[in-house]
Design a protein around this nucleic acid. Structure first.
Lengths: 217, 217
DNA sequence: GTGAATTTTTAGGTTTATCTAAAAATAGAT
DNA sequence: ATCTATTTTTAGATAAACCTAAAAATTCAC
């Protein structure tokens, strides 16, 4: 049985493994977890003993198959609860992350599967991220940052790279949400500032900072 | 901000205060919490520092007004989540206690009030216990153990004194649930064994052990 | 390939929540 | 009212999850 702290570390290791090297450094992990590297060293020893990661001193950690399964269980719960909060309790998409961070640690496989059923077996969460099934399987349709789309192309918003409340509220303000269709009208060479058309809903300017965190397909 | 452990102690102190003396002994608390008296001594010092109880050495503890408010917040969440689990996720009433013990510690007042609204502002939980409102107010209609009802009287089941799964499953087996109307046909002087008629649904025998834990009005 | 910079680990300390064993205070019985 | 039994508290330990400071290993630059 993993503690809350252990689950959070494992989740971070999983995310860093997927989005970067398969080997995760102590420093990267300490930054992700907002703890000191020394604390990470302590924790990874415990996680290695529990066989959810493998680890050789000074060589970073690698998540194991059982570790991946455990991480995906937590991620599944996090995303199901986010769907619940938005679809059923009418939270806005920028309000749900912190609450789901708490709910994801509730331990009851039956609760998770009944929640899944209650929600109609959703496949993506309110930020466009895929929800793993009981076996940890999920569909991973390719997504690209809007910043990489060429001028003239039409794309659909399918996700966000980060779920910070400030970022999401900004998207609301410029009328961008999941499913929004946009056409890139112009992209500035110097600073990456984009002009995009919200199909049938006017034109907006999108900074490179925002464009890098907006995922399209 | 109270920790999970502190919330659990406070809840136990509240329950013991309501159902017994206003002053709660270290031993009673250690039994309720399934910890050693020495651990209780440690904890009540912390709770007294946080002003949620008052405490004089060797004299037991008394819950304060702020303590009562905090306890009722936790109890409110526990009971709302139980309603959610039974009404929305179709759990049986004997399955929800342990899950609600986890969910009751989720910290988000907005979540609690939105859940309350989603559930239609329920006033009692699946075991017949009243749900406090945001201000800690709740209706406390008087309830008596079935064991104290006289022969010939008709009453309605409105609650259970304990929520142990085994007890609740037994009630299911003998077709007793909240709202069931019963008439006491016979009560044995020696062992308290009762014969009761489930109005329009036959007759069952109820041991004193069960009758003491069944609340009626 | 050696020395400096960086990363990682170790050593030792803190807080929270528990424990056991022993000491102190209270309560009960005659 | 005193002596015994019970209750409660204190003292000292442990495990989890963090910290700081210092030591060790690795990496990078030239």
């Amino acid at each position: 049985m993993l503690s809350f702290a252990e689950e959070n570390y494992l989740k971070a290791i999983y995310h860093l493994s997927v989005s970067g090297q398969q080997s995760v450094s102590t420093n990267a992990l300490s930054e992700e977890m907002k703890t000191k590297p020394a604390s990470v060293s302590d924790m990874i020893k415990k996680l290695a003993e529990k066989r959810v990661i493998s680890y050789q001193k000074y060589q970073g950690v690698k998540i194991s198959d059982t570790g991946k399964k455990e991480a995906l269980k937590v991620i599944r719960k996090h995303r199901l609860w986010e769907v619940f909060l938005v679809e059923k309790l009418k939270f806005k998409w920028d309000e749900v992350h912190d609450i789901a961070e708490q709910l994801e640690h509730i331990k009851s496989p039956l609760l998770t599967s009944k929640l899944d059923e209650f929600l109609g077996f959703p496949r993506i969460d309110p930020h466009g991220d895929p929800i793993p099934d009981e076996n940890g399987q999920f569909s991973n349709a390719p997504k690209y940052p809007l910043s990489e789309v060429d001028v003239g192309k039409q794309v659909v918003i399918v996700g966000v790279e980060n779920s910070d409340s400030e970022f999401l509220k900004h998207l609301d303000k410029i009328h961008i949400s999941l499913g929004t269709k946009i056409i890139v009208n112009d992209k500035n060479e110097f600073d990456g500032l984009m002009q995009v058309e919200l199909v049938g809903n006017g034109e907006v300017h999108i900074s490179s900072k925002v464009a890098e965190n907006l995922l399209v397909s």
